[in-house]
């Protein structure tokens, strides 16, 4: 009979996998993050060193907000970190955030980069820009609107239009110009594509290197990371980052941001960690690690600015842009952008 020995093994195995619940212990803060933890680990380690508070993390790329909501009152989540402002806006809508007693409304962070009621704040900024071939493209600046210009016909590469990074850019275009003009723009960009949208931002750089296309759309930090990597340096060196802005605005930015969970069992520690992430020390550290921009006024990073110049973020608030995402996503389907 298989039953008895099997169930014993099962019980043993189940017991082994039960780790003690990280709940309301002193000296702990629990972070649910849709940003890959390795990208922020050095900063978290520095926090632990400074405060002796241990940071537990779990990386949940999609469904983080749903999980915290489902876990409800007993959720161990103290802090939520995301890579997209929309997820934080969604977290507010789902009622899973609370206002920390410190930091999130302070003036050092531009109002467009945080929740007006202080429930979340950006931690670092990344801009979504136009990559161009160093050899084949003369321009050093471009307006996003010009991506629909027929002069780029067959010369543009981009990842899926439904990728959150592109949805955010298209949503910003709607915020600037309205739905109809954005739809026409999107059709124009679609007509200019060298190939069907696929791959990731790095593949855009690789395609430019190989000469599949001359320009492409990607996030700035990928360029910095490619230049750091021995094997990928050639991709990064083949391209330059154009000074990309809206016609009457700045560069499209998105954030990685932080919020305090509504039922945080370690609230005091969580507030300390949020304060730390927005401190000068962590800001420089995070920005340098990932080639991003700090959000705190007066903090500057040498490496990122040397690569891409100082940033001129667009004036629309992240919330205004997040509100247009649904429409943006529908437009991508309507114009058959990915088809």
């Amino acid at each position: 009979m298989l039953h008895r020995p099997f169930s014993r093994v099962l019980a043993a195995a189940a017991f082994l996998t039960v780790s003690p619940p990280a709940f309301a212990q002193t000296g702990v803060v629990n972070v649910y993050t849709s940003r890959e933890p390795a990208l922020i680990k050095p900063a978290l380690d520095a926090f632990t060193q400074a405060t002796a508070i241990k940071v537990n993390t779990v990386f949940i790329q999609n469904g983080l907000e749903e999980r915290v909501k489902a876990e409800g009152a007993n959720s161990p989540a103290d802090i939520i970190i995301t890579v997209d402002a929309a997820k934080l806006v969604n977290a507010v809508d789902l009622g899973i955030l609370q206002k920390p007693s410190n930091m999130l409304t302070e003036a050092a962070i531009a109002p467009s980069l945080r929740d007006p009621e202080g429930r979340w704040s950006a931690v670092t900024l990344r801009s979504r820009v136009v990559y161009a071939s160093k050899d084949r493209v003369k321009e050093n600046a471009i307006h996003y609107e010009d991506l629909a210009d027929p002069k780029w016909k067959g010369k543009i590469c981009i990842r899926s239009g439904q990728h959150p990074y592109n949805i955010s850019l298209i949503a910003a275009m709607i915020a600037h110009h309205g739905v109809e003009k954005t739809e026409a723009w999107l059709r124009g960009v679609k007509a200019n594509l060298a190939k069907k949208p696929s791959g990731g931002d790095r593949d855009v750089a690789k395609d430019i290197l190989a000469g599949v296309c001359d320009i492409g759309i990607g996030n700035t930090y990928y360029v910095g990371l490619m230049l750091k990597d021995k094997d990928q340096r050639a991709w990064g060196e083949a391209i330059k980052v154009l000074d990309s802005t809206f016609k009457n605005g700045g560069t499209h930015v998105n954030i990685s941001g932080v919020g305090l969970a509504k039922n945080a069992p370690n609230k005091a520690n969580a507030e300390k960690l949020i304060g730390f992430l927005l401190s000068d020390q962590a800001q420089v550290m995070l920005a340098t690690l990932n080639e991003e921009y700090p959000v705190r006024a007066g903090v500057s990073t040498v490496t990122t600015e040397k690569l891409f110049g100082p940033i001129k973020p667009d004036s629309f608030s992240l919330i205004q842009i997040a509100n247009q995402r649904k429409k943006a996503s529908e437009l991508v389907d309507q114009v058959g952008f990915d088809q």
Binding site: A14, T17, V18, P21, A22, F23, N74, P76, P265
Partner: peptide, 9 residues
């Protein structure tokens, strides 16, 4: 805390 999601169960 949460026993099922807090463990591998």
């Amino acid at each position: 805390g949460l026993v099922l999601t807090g463990s591998g169960l």
